[in-house]
Design a protein around this nucleic acid. Structure first.
Lengths: 263, 263
DNA sequence: TCAAAAGCGAGAGCACTGCTCTCTCAATCA
DNA sequence: TGATTGAGAGAGCAGTGCTCTCGCTTTTGA
């Protein structure tokens, strides 16, 4: 099981059904009882089986009853661990975000800190590789929203923003290091309302890059996921592009130029 | 009902269950019998109700039984008209593609033939407007694929490629008119495999633009839908961008520069 | 014109889903 | 040791897609 699964299972125990800790200090030292360990393991099993079903049949066909069968348990028993189907989707959502975030972090960290273009390409390549490997999870995270399901922001926002936060910090670090052309297109002006949004982002994330760079960073972000989505969701058609890695690499090169990353 | 619905219902009758025309010539002159007219009307009603359910509850929750109820008929009766749920999805897919294609065509046609940048922006703005107005249809067309559902290419390819075909022709017309900077980024080279794919596209679509322009056109295409998808699917988060029209307009300006469209 | 064929709607039924409720048994705790 | 809590089983409800059969009506063709 991935590191992501274990860490989020632990956090799920804090904000989920197991509300055993009225005082954190008093219980922190206690070792988990066998029952608690069994519960943690069962939830992890449910998530693991849920991932398998997600990968095999997609989010819409994710069935608690099928998970229960694979778990060797009657269907009503899983409701002891997962409130409902949406809750399982939330767990899988967080799991997916964290797995993607971990892989992106590892890929970016493996590149020289001064090689901003390399970091950008590593991030993008990691996103694409994960998306192709886990298309159903990618669809759950970045595809059409599941009807009637609203992700609980307080649990999904942090893991769900790991990639964009990392991407923005690459661009900002490049700017601070003088490796970002701030004047890529002097002709394009930033409208007033957009400038206000960008200013809020700059303050909140403690950034230094100017409006033009931030705006282009947003475009690169959406374009990256647009390209990956087209590939994963089959929008290119089956035969149009045989050299998909080359296409993606070329798109990265162009996007690199869009944001003004020297490389 | 939209023009798109009517036209595709007619075509559905030709390739769907009503295989009455063994010889096209012999039946072309015959007026439709009352039964045939009733059948056409019923299928159109099913598609209309399907669209409503799609808009209200999304593709995953699209239920033939619910459509049957709204149609005032028992559930098994709709199977006389629609083979199964996937067939209804196919009808809605074609309907959506054609409605989007009609609106894009109208928007582009309303711009001066020599104003290529204006045509590009009109196309993009029409796509975004339709997507925001019909998010469930947009999700069906451009979001995560419905699990277990494979769109029948022979029926969906033509309507499904109307937007990209139109977009490519705008770029190619601009190139032929000398309004496309062919040398936007001399540094970026096109790899061999990608060049082969682009050559095939150029031949098939009878284009004149060079590889670099075609490749950038592909990026603009994916970026456009990436930006629209982020907005429609809520990837930006609820509060990050308040000036979404301005953001989109700015993105179009940058993309216009990416492909080298003067304007 | 009239019987055969085809189309259509209703209804029952099967297997599946999410989810709730109750019952019983075992583990945990005071 | 007795009370509490958690867990699994099972029945049940309402919904789904889909199939099958049974009558009835419209259309067709000899």
């Amino acid at each position: 099981m991935s590191r992501a699964v274990l860490s989020f299972v632990a956090s799920a125990l804090c904000c989920g059904k197991l509300v055993c800790m009225t005082s954190v200090e008093s219980t922190r030292v206690k070792p988990p009882t066998p029952r608690e360990r069994a519960r943690t393991q069962t939830i992890a099993d449910i998530v693991r089986l849920g991932r398998e079903h997600l990968a095999l049949h997609g989010a819409a066909a994710l069935s608690l009853r099928a998970v229960a069968r694979d778990l060797g348990v009657v269907s009503s028993a899983v409701y002891r661990y997962v409130e409902n189907r949406d809750e399982l989707l939330t767990l899988l959502l967080i799991d997916g975000y964290n797995e993607l975030g971990d892989e992106v972090d590892a890929a970016v960290d493996s590149v020289l800190e001064s090689d901003f273009a390399g970091q950008f390409r590593a991030l993008a390549t990691a996103v694409r590789a994960w998306a192709i490997r886990e298309p159903a999870s990618y669809a759950l995270l970045f595809g059409s929203p599941v009807p009637g399901y609203q992700a609980p922001g307080e649990r999904t926002t942090v893991p769900g923003t790991r990639v964009i936060v990392r991407l923005v910090h690459i661009f900002d670090a490049a700017f601070r290091a003088g490796a970002l052309d701030a004047e890529v297109s002097p002709g394009v002006v930033i409208p007033e309302g957009l400038a206000a949004d960008l200013a809020a982002i700059r303050t909140e994330m403690n950034l230094a890059a100017p409006d033009a760079s931030l705006a282009r960073g947003v475009l690169v972000w959406t374009s990256l996921f647009g390209a990956v989505s087209f590939e994963v969701f089959g929008q290119y058609g089956p035969d149009t592009f045989k050299a998909r890695e080359e296409l993606f690499g070329h798109q990265l090169s162009v996007l690199q130029g869009v944001v003004g990353l020297q490389g």
